[in-house]
Structures are given as C-alpha cells and as structure tokens.
Design a protein around this nucleic acid. Structure first.
Lengths: 247, 247
DNA sequence: CGGCCCGCACTGGCATACAAGAAGCAGTAA
DNA sequence: TTACTGCTTCTTGTATGCCAGTGCGGGCCG
C-alpha cells in the first residue's frame, strides 16, 4: 500500500526525543510529546495511534508507550478500544458544548475567587497581558492575540489559588484542544476586539473586588466565545457514537 | 494450532470476585478493585502498594498491575515514587479544602442545571431517595443514611445531564475518598437531620425550577457538610509519621 | 565507641516474547 | 456479480527477565 511508504518516511523525526529525557522517564517524555501533538493538532482527531509505531519512533519499547497512552486516555485525549487500537479522541459537538459548560463554570469561579483575594501577583500579570493584547488587536495580530487569550485565562485560573481547580481546568483545556479552536473563534469578524473588551471588563470588576459581577461577566464572556467558536466550526455531522469509557 | 492446547489449562486461575464481567481485561479488574479499596478505606492512606504483592494476590503478572496503578495515579488516588514505591495518596487538609471548593462548585451547578431541565427521571429517583432518607434518619441508621447521601449527590449530578461534569465529579469524589469521610461528618450531633433538611430544600427549589436559589442552597449545603466534616476530623496529626508527602 | 561506606535487597522502568481477539482480504461457491 | 467463509495480518493484552536507582543495614575504619 502507498500509505505504508508514507509511514516509513516519517520515522526519522526522532532527533528531538533523545535529547530531552535526561531528567524524567521515557514515558513522561512520550506523554508530554503526544499530548503536545494532539493539543496542537499535529495529529488529526480520530487518527489511529499504533503502539508499535510510536515505540519505534521514540526509540523505546512498547511498554512505556502503552503506559503513556493509558494516561492520555484518562486525560480524555485518546480512546483505547481493547484489542483494536488507540485513537485520538474526536469530540462530538455535544461534548464540546459540555466542555464549554465546564469551562464557563470553572473560569467564572476563578474570577470570583481572584476578586476575593485582592491584589496578588497574578493581577499585575493580567494587567500586563491586557496591555499587550490591546497592541495585538491594534496590529490585527491574531496569532499573538490567541496566545495572549490563552495566557489570560490561564492566569485567571492560576490566580484563584486552588490547585485542584487548576488541574481540572488544564484537563478540560486539553480535551478541548483549545489551541486549535481559539483561532477558529477569532476568525469571526470583530470577535478579537469584543473579546479584548470583555477581558478588560472582567479585570476591572476583579480589581473592584466585585466577585459576583466578575463571575457573571466572565461566564458571559465564555458563552460569547463559545458562540463565536461554534459559528466558525464546520457542520461536523460525524457520529462520535462510541461511548467514552469513563467508568 | 499447537498453541491452542495450552491456553485452556490456565483458564481458571482467576476465579475470585468477578464483579466486572463486562470487561474481561485483567487490568480493568485490578483498577476497579484497588479503587474500591482505597475509596472505601480498606487500605490506609500512605500505605505502600507493592506491584509484586498485588500481582501475586490477583494472580496476574506485574504488567497489568503496573498499568492499573499508573491509571490510579493519574486519577490522584496513589502516588508513584520511582524506584521507591507506590503509596496511597494522603490528602492534606488544604487539598481537602480545595476539593470541597470544587465539590461546591460542581454540585451547585448541577442543581441549577437540573432545575432548568424540568421533570426528568432523576427527579423521581431523588424524591424516592429522600423518602428513604427520612426513614433512615428516623431510625438513626447512619450507615444507610450515608449511602443515601451519596446517592442523592450522585443523582443530582447525573441529572445535570452533562457527562463531563459527571466525570470530573467522580474523579473529585474518588480523590476525597468521600465514603470514608461521610461517616465522619455524620458523627456530628444533629448533622444527619440538618443534612436531610437541606436536601429537601434543594429538591423543592429544583422542583420550583428556581435554578439560582437551588444552586445557592446547594452550595451552602456543601459548605455546611464540609464544616461538619472538618470539625470531626483529627487535628492533622498524621498517624503514619514517616515522612509522608509534605504537600 | 561512633561515624562512614559499601553492598545487598527491594523497588519500579524498560525490553522482549508470546497469546489471542479483530478486521480486512482473497478466494470460492451460489 | 455477490455473498459468505476462512485465513492472514494487523492490533493490543499479558508474562517474564533484566536493568538501574534507592534505602537500609552491617561491617569496617578511625
């Protein structure tokens, strides 16, 4: 088959793997790298992940690869079908909606908590972030603005000073493969400007220590971003029917 | 063809509790059983888990045990210290607080969502649950009431009809080893009665489709249960004194 | 007598070999 | 031509052996 030839051609891209794993175990390297690829979108959702191929590529045996995939499964990034194969999770439209519902919940709570905490280092970082974001919007630099959006939300959650909240948030964002999606949402005309304005408002309310309003506005902001995203998303009538093994 | 004869011989090596007929996978069995033990408190927090010993006990090799422990680690139930050992996670007081903050958040949201959904099957189950709970309180059957409390909260979250919410909630509860804790909280005098009353109030608000109030009361209920719990908890003086994770 | 150091036993990490289900493919018969 | 059947070849699941880091205890030296 032709596909086989393609697969073999890509095997040389290992050069990075060997240089990093000095500190940690191989499986940690595999986990980090595979997660990065999936989130960034290097690997297409639904694509099969062969343990053997990955082991070969990373220059390790199947064992660490297996354990890495197992972890990525509980993180919701891949789906392991016993005796069949491992595949990159393809989130259904419904799942995306659910994830955004969670996102709204967590970020809203984070905004409230941050407001209650008063002036903490994250506040300064948020202000700096917004200054940069303003410039990016001015320049119409959507790539940079997407990064800053990501940072803004991360800072907000970090500022809530709740490691569990943060952990769940990260898992959420990974499942959303947010990096892939933000650009889509920003492709909506005027969305960047609007988004930037909403960020400013949230931070103002936080500075005013108005937790209730901060939460409410933040939640509305998430809903708006979801709308912008779904509007720019292809129809995607794919059936992601197989239940996610979430025992 | 020759190999076929061999396989039959080893078929019945594992014939203990077949609680998971759905998945014949050994590691799934190990995961489920170990999770049950940890959550239920059969294994003391901080206790070492030897791969070899577990493999021996379950009648399998180390491989499925390893993968099971790996998954339990990402679920936050055990901590694997490379080259040292695997230990049941000891949640610090701060972590417990954080987990309750999340619990409050999620259950509050669930109450709101359920209220918005109107009359769904879960509502009936909740009503039945409360009737039984009333009787249990009447009889002062704390054991049974603890079960019902668990079920009440589970039903509430299930009724929110958001699988992601449910998944995160389950992980949360597992980390809390809630089953261990509920009894502690109920040991506070009058807590059971109070708790039951709060449940009733929440359900009433849900039936009235008053999502805002339902969320608020639910959150207050969680805070109350946390207070009851922390009040009944020993003063952070850990029994297993050998340098556990300081967190 | 006390402190240091080396070695042993135990741990998990990784590689490798084998087993067995799943799925596609080819060949045959209707 | 089409549908069915059996096989071939994928895949993951499991077992086992070896390796390397860690911690502890006993022995040796000061």
């Amino acid at each position: 088959m032709i596909q086989r030839a393609v697969r073999e051609m890509e095997e040389y891209s290992v050069n990075r793997a060997k240089s990093e794993p000095k500190n940690g175990s191989m499986q940690a390297t595999v986990i980090a790298e595979m997660r990065r690829r999936i989130i960034k979108g290097d690997i297409e959702p639904g694509a099969p992940l062969s343990e053997l191929a990955l082991a070969d590529e990373f220059g390790v045996s199947r064992t660490p690869v297996r354990e890495a995939l197992k972890q990525l499964q509980t993180e919701g990034l891949v789906e392991i079908r016993p005796r069949v194969g491992t595949f990159v999770t393809i989130p259904s439209r419904r799942e995306i909606t659910e994830l955004f519902e969670m996102k709204e919940l967590i970020e809203g709570a984070a905004a409230r908590l941050l407001a209650q905490r008063g002036r903490v280092p994250e506040i300064d970082l948020l202000e700096r972030n917004l200054r940069e974001a303003d410039e990016a919007v001015e320049r119409d630099d959507r790539e940079r603005y997407a990064e800053l959006v990501h940072e803004f939300h991360d800072l907000l959650v970090a500022g809530a000073d709740n490691t569990k909240l943060q952990a769940h948030y990260r898992m959420l964002m990974n499942q959303l493969a947010y990096a892939r999606l933000v650009m889509t949402s920003l492709s909506q005309p005027g969305r960047a400007t609007q988004s930037d304005r909403e960020h400013h408002l949230v931070l103002e309310l936080i500075l005013a220590k108005d937790g209730d309003s901060a939460e409410q506005v933040m939640r509305e902001h998430v809903r708006a971003s979801r709308r912008a995203l779904l509007a720019g998303l292809p129809i995607s009538g794919r059936h992601a029917g197989s239940g996610v093994a979430s025992n």
